[in-house]
Amino acid sequence: MHSDASIQHVEEQTTAWLEKVVIGLNLCPFAAKPQRNKQIKIEVCDATDDQAVMESIITELTLLDNSEVADLETTLVVTPNCFQDFDDYNQFLDVADMLIDQFGWRGTYQIASFHPDYCFADAEPEEDSNLTNRSPYPVFHLIREASIEKALKYYGGDAEAIPDINIDRVCALSDSEKRALFPYLFKAHSHS
């Protein structure tokens, strides 16, 4: 996974997911504008160990901290070689969250989570509701809280309802739509 072509492939798949699923299905009403304005960074961390991923997240949060929103709104740290197991990923989220506290970034940044095997605490793994957070690779989405607050101010709908609306949206997809939007999920399951 150390070749540029592989990193480029991961970037392309992540961008396709961002555009077709996150923006295409309007799962995040706030993603289209920064994507149009090229303010979303996709950082592929091809490390295979927790420590290197932790360092990558710190580096990217520091970069966000030192950048203007106009230049860099948000960053997706993608880890194709680490945290394949959702439970390991989920446990590492606690570490990532502690980093935010450790660097005094609580209230400034937060991390949203996406994973190929994402499963909500109150859902079964095979439930379609999980599709709202299923990405081609494990992703740590570094978000500026000020940007969320600003976006919510201009958002016409009920922000609290977004997760439920998203679940309804993905659950209403036909099988062929799911296969088109989430090809990486069906490839993985066809081998089992």
Rank of each mutant, 00 (worst) to 15 (best):
T108F: 06
L63V: 05
F30V: 08
D71G: 13
D158Y: 07
P138R: 08
F30G: 05
T75D: 09
A70P: 01
W105S: 03
N81K: 05
D158R: 12
T14Y: 11
L185A: 06
F30A: 13
D65G: 10
L152R: 15
A70Y: 01
F92D: 01
M54P: 00
D158W: 06
R144M: 11
N66M: 02
T15R: 15
L25D: 12
D128T: 11
R144P: 03
Y137N: 01
L64G: 04
D65Q: 15
E124H: 12
H2E: 13
S129W: 05
F186A: 09
V95P: 00
W105D: 08
N133G: 01
V77E: 02
N133A: 03
D46N: 15
K187P: 00
Y184L: 10
N90Q: 15
N81L: 03
I162T: 11
T14V: 08
E43T: 10
C82F: 02
Q13D: 13
L99G: 01
E126P: 08
Y137W: 02
H2W: 07
A188Y: 10
I7R: 12
E149C: 07
P34T: 10
R144H: 07
L18T: 02
E68M: 11
A5M: 12
D164S: 13
P80E: 04
F120W: 09
H141E: 09
S6K: 05
N130Y: 04
Y184S: 11
D71F: 04
F103M: 13
V95T: 14
Q8Y: 02
I148Q: 08
I40R: 01
H115A: 02
L181R: 06
P163F: 07
Q13I: 02
K153E: 14
